[in-house]
Design a protein around this nucleic acid. Sequence first.
DNA 1: CGCAGGGTTGAGCGCTCTCAATATAAGTGG
DNA 2: CCACTTATATTGAGAGCGCTCAACCCTGCG
Lengths: 246, 246
Amino acid sequence: MHAVTAIHPAAAAAKFAVTCSSCNLRELCLPAGLSADELERVENVVYARRRVARGESVFKAGSEFNAIYAVRSGFFKTSLIDGDGREQVTGFFMGGELLGMDGIDGSYHGTAIALEDSEVCIMPYALIEEMSRDIPALQRRLYAVLAREIARDHGVMMLLGSMRAEERLATFLLNLSRRFVRRGYSATEFHLRMTREEIGSYLGLKLETVSRLFSAFQKDGLIEVQQKYVRIRDIAGVERVLAARH
Amino acid sequence: MHAVTAIHPAAAAAKFAVTCSSCNLRELCLPAGLSADELERVENVVYARRRVARGESVFKAGSEFNAIYAVRSGFFKTSLIDGDGREQVTGFFMGGELLGMDGIDGSYHGTAIALEDSEVCIMPYALIEEMSRDIPALQRRLYAVLAREIARDHGVMMLLGSMRAEERLATFLLNLSRRFVRRGYSATEFHLRMTREEIGSYLGLKLETVSRLFSAFQKDGLIEVQQKYVRIRDIAGVERVLAARH
DNA sequence: CGCAGGGTTGAGCGCTCTCAATATAAGTGG
DNA sequence: CCACTTATATTGAGAGCGCTCAACCCTGCG
């Protein structure tokens, strides 16, 4: 069992600064408007961290659901394997984002795999659930996080259902850029953690098509690309790829 | 405000039978293992119904979130409209299914439109949220419903990302069939409520392609189709379209 | 009856895939 | 440190699936 012991408020705040904030639990904690006391309790939820080596899984599709994971550092993909062994990448996740929420109804629906050596915070669901009953702000937050995941998926459905290949890649690059920025990294220069094949799976394209598009974007002066290194030279230009629909 | 007045248990059960069960709230109520007393409270959440005429919307993208809706009768589509006015259908919903959960973080993300004269049960979110704190089973249920929506969307992502046109249509038909059966309708014979264009949008295909595929399935003896009427003549054959991946 | 919305079908094009060869990186073990 | 292996990327040529454009048909309804 997990014991919630009394901690001095200042100590709680300090501990939060170490554990929750450095776990980058922004999705769950930051905008929730929790009191210091509530923060302490939430912070206690993160009762363990776990290193996940590149290529290892955090959880596998079908295995029993018992925790949500917050990415503390590193980079992950989530994917489904279909009956014929075909993989569909359903998302990429970086620091501060949550993994495993699709498992709340019993077992994980997909598999989460680290694309580089990473670390996650383990948040046992039983504790979260219990606590969310006492802390309305946390409950609202949890629902909101789930709802936002649905909204994100709908965005991907729109991408897959109605965009042409170059629009998909442009959307992908802009999305990555925005997320890197929010984490204090460069908006225009980054290393891709995933392979062309994984990008292709996510975007509903073949890896050769992805590769060709990178080359085409480079030829058009939109980006500079060399294997996994990408520099966006003309963000407005990349955005224009989306604007010029049809 | 909504007043929870004391009701005799038997009366509560009767009222539940009328309101909740006939609202087909199976997603939320049925497998939750609620006590009679809890059922009464949940049933009180459905404080109003609303008729939605064909073509009308239940809620619109961007409007303020205040309720989840359960389909009582009829048929709905949800869709996103992108900047250029392009529509992406994100789902079809029939009796007993829930609409509007993607709005929990403030405002509805998509628009829900009735494809035939329909009726929904209005479940004010403030009440649900409050109640889910008192009734753990309901809370778990709500999370599960949200999680299942995410899983559903991942399934659609797989469909859009990795299936060929005929596989998509086969998947669509089998999914509809399964859902009709669960509601006591025929598994093999039904009227489509949506247009070819809406099916196409959902499946990431053009309406002409959808039409051609229906014709092709008919020629192969898999189905019989005449405008919106569909009869599946060879379910195993339709399933084989999926099995024979490339 | 005429109109409008939805559905079907055809012809041809083009985007993306398939197949294949080559190039580049990143390990691995001697 | 260097050959060797393996994973990942790039690029080309050609094919085919699904799209575009267009004509026609069906059905319901005022």
